[in-house]
Design a protein around this nucleic acid. Structure first.
Lengths: 226, 226
DNA sequence: CAAGATTTTCAACGAATTCTCAAGCGCCTG
DNA sequence: CAGGCGCTTGAGAATTCGTTGAAAATCTTG
């Protein structure tokens, strides 16, 4: 359910610094080193915000921006060392929503991203309803229904389900889930995830002993059957 | 009908320079010299974009921003001579969408405004009359009726209800509500929202202990049942 | 300025939820 | 086919979360 941010930056030091700052805000960060990589990643699984450095090897930031803008309304922030006004204008004309010049303070980056999210969220086209046969999930409303009847999930159960549902079929290890659902900084107690998966099943599955949606992949983790 | 921009700036030279630059883009410009003036003008006839200088005599730019944001979703750009990151963050937290530091090039200002307009939410058409069973809300008139009888809500209670009613079914976290209803700059955040939700319930619900409209989603926040 | 209305803070209670622990069960492997 | 490893299950303890009443602080109004 978290906010996902894609950062495109070839300088590794800056990349990790930015990543840490953004994760501090509770956002998930995905990294790309080249323009091609960024476009590919975004096409595969769109993020909620994109952060683009202009100077990249190969396809440059402007092109990445245009390419992503062509397929989505996602908020885009451009970053560069060049403080040239011409660049700023070019970036915004390419479809970016904001433009930052290095060096910048992480706090400001976070604040600007938050401002963009505040505006983008409600405008987000159609709430992505997730359906799996008789199961329906409406993340925005915190609602899950089975065969039309609403079922009550606790916060953790809900987050767990949404996380799995965001990538149907993908197997999540316990570590993955701990990280995504509980956030970083949880020392892994072995059976924590298991217990919650179980409680999720008793609510979501018709026959919890023979789950049809939340299935376990022995030795690897859990996944949601598409 | 063109795009109208309200600029708030006490330095006359800058004001006219900005005005010329914006009119060059084909936008209509309305000027205000003080914060009070700006708020009054905006309240009378809302513009499509607001440009606010932070350092103003009397009510400062942050306050103007919060005040306008409280009554509208209009795109807001803050401008200042101070390049202090702290200010930028404060501005964005106050509800601004972008932040420029002087000196800036008119071209950049125009480009940023254009970017904001591109994303601006289409104004809600006409009267979105809000009805929820026996509850009726008329935002423009500040009136709420239950079963035909008008009920009295305080300002805060009313804003809270309208905010929830604008997205029926959507869950609002306490942070969401604090931001939207109170505007930023709220420090002590204890159970503030809870208390107001409670008072709202005692007035709006037949049985406040078993609310049918303003329901709480444990662990997530509150929502208005559609 | 004072009374009244409204907003905000505070603390305590009860209930819902999360987490831990330990035993049980079944599948895979040797 | 026996043992181990990994997953499931149940129940109890600890924690978090929301509700509530009342009082303090602030704002409005006459």
């Amino acid at each position: 359910m978290g906010t996902r941010i894609l950062t495109v930056e070839d300088d590794e030091r800056i990349r990790t610094a930015v990543k840490l700052a953004l994760e501090d805000e509770g956002w998930e960060v995905e990294e790309a080193e080249t323009g091609e990589d960024a476009i590919a990643r975004f096409t595969r699984t769109p993020s909620d915000v994109v952060l683009i450095d202009i100077m990249l090897p190969g396809v440059d930031g402007f092109e990445v921006c245009r390419s992503i803008r062509r397929q989505s309304d996602v908020p885009i922030v451009m970053v560069t060392a060049r403080a040239d006004t011409h660049d700023v204008v070019a970036g915004l004309e390419a479809g970016a929503d904001d433009y930052l010049t290095k060096p910048f303070v992480p706090k400001e980056l976070s604040a600007r991203i938050r401002a963009l999210l505040r505006r983008a969220r409600p405008a987000s086209p159609g709430n992505p309803r997730l359906r799996f046969e008789e199961l329906e999930i409406v993340p925005q409303e915190g609602v899950v229904t089975r065969g039309g009847d609403q079922i009550h999930l606790t916060k953790t159960e809900f987050r767990l389900l949404v996380e799995l549902a965001n990538n149907p079929g993908k197997v999540f290890s316990r570590e993955d889930l701990l990280e995504k659902v509980w956030g970083h900084g949880v020392f892994g107690d072995g059976r924590l995830v298991d217990v919650h998966v179980r409680r999720l099943r008793t609510k979501v599955e018709a026959d919890p002993a023979n789950p049809r949606h939340v299935v376990t992949v022995r030795g690897l983790g859990y996944k949601l059957q598409p």
